[in-house]
């Protein structure tokens, strides 16, 4: 897209900010028992305040009320309001169509926030007015480049009494790398798999080390079979004498903390944040990277004594970590 075209597009989308998406929506039915009952069934909700006339009398409400999180349900419109954008029916549709026509074809609901002023009573009619509240700068995201669009909805009853509000944000984006669908990636199994830490690629020079961690539950240190010099991380030749043969010794697991960082961001799937990532000096003299567990942030001190633990992840991967020495 040329700079001029882009500027024109941005000017046009920004003209939507502050506009109501359409006229006020008035709930088709007043707050009523059958809808509450259906909603509670679907959600697994069984509180008597919502479902039982006699039970409700014993609550602070004294009568049946609607679950607060149903707020939006009272003004939800039929499916026909959400069919495509060929014939946009409101300002929000027009904004989305404009972006879609300019290549921002992807849409992703990112977050929603609701505030409830009070419980709704039977017979009240809910009205909602939704305004296009904010459009972000163009952002590069994992899904692709696009704009975050936030709408704000104000809810009130037939007398204009405030009932609550909702903000809803979507990302309208140009899909960067179309992701394979669940079925293409191996069906439900692939979707259900919990992400885990990034695994080391296993090659000639390092695979044996991880195998010894997994099989023997030790931290091996590579040793030259000619001059007996230790080296970590493993490499295929001794930098002391040039010999290629090697075996390994088992580290005692005793170590001191050389330096550390507390990693907060970015957060990758498969890790729990914050991570205290560390460099340690093993008792045998070699250094290695790892992470520190079972230690509060404020207790971390350079030079502290540590001991190794062979940690097993949920997926069975074994990895040497450290904790404060007991």
């Amino acid at each position: 897209m040329s700079d001029e075209k882009k500027q024109a597009l941005e000017a046009e989308i920004r003209s939507y900010v502050g506009k109501p998406i359409g006229p006020e929506v008035i709930g088709r039915d007043p707050v009523n028992e059958p809808m509450i009952r259906q909603w509670c069934d679907a959600m697994g909700e069984s509180h008597p305040a919502y479902l039982d006339v006699d039970g409700a009398k014993g609550t602070v409400h004294g009568e049946i009320v609607a679950p607060p999180t149903m707020l939006q349900a009272w003004v939800m419109e039929g499916w026909d309001m959400h069919e495509g954008y060929d014939e946009p029916k409101n300002e929000q549709h027009r904004l989305h169509k404009l972006l879609a026509d300019n290549g921002y074809t992807g849409v992703l609901g990112t977050n929603t926030e609701e505030n409830y002023t009070r419980y709704l009573k039977l017979g009240e009619t809910v009205k909602a007015l939704t305004v296009i509240d904010e459009i972000s700068e163009e952002k590069a995201t994992g899904a692709g480049i696009g704009y975050f669009i936030t709408t704000k909805t104000a809810f009130e009853n037939q007398d204009g009494e405030e009932l609550g509000s909702m903000s809803f944000r979507v990302l309208r984006f140009k899909p960067a790398n179309p992701q394979p669908t669940a079925s293409a990636a191996g069906g439900e199994e692939a979707v259900a798999q919990k992400p885990s830490r990034i695994k080391p690629p296993m090659g000639h020079d390092n695979g044996w080390w991880w195998e010894r961690v997994a099989d023997d539950g030790v931290i091996p240190i590579q040793r030259c079979t000619s001059c007996e010099k230790l080296r970590h991380p493993p490499r295929p030749m001794c930098d002391g004498c040039g010999h290629q043969g090697f075996d390994s010794i088992d580290a005692s697991g005793k170590a001191t903390l050389t330096t550390y960082t507390v990693v907060h961001y970015p957060q990758f799937p498969g890790y729990e944040y914050p991570i205290i990532s560390i460099i340690v000096d093993l008792e045998e003299g070699e250094r290695m990277a790892s992470s520190l567990i079972d230690c509060e942030r404020e207790d971390v001190k350079i030079g502290m004594a540590l001991e190794a633990v062979i940690h097993e992840d949920d997926d069975g991967f074994k990895i040497p970590l450290f904790k404060p020495a007991s």
Binding site: R197, P200, D205, N206, V263, S277, A289, S290, I319, L321
Partner: peptide, 10 residues
């Protein structure tokens, strides 16, 4: 392989 000595540890 060089990066792999760091990646699993975050």
């Amino acid at each position: 392989i060089h990066w792999s000595w760091y990646m699993p540890f975050g």
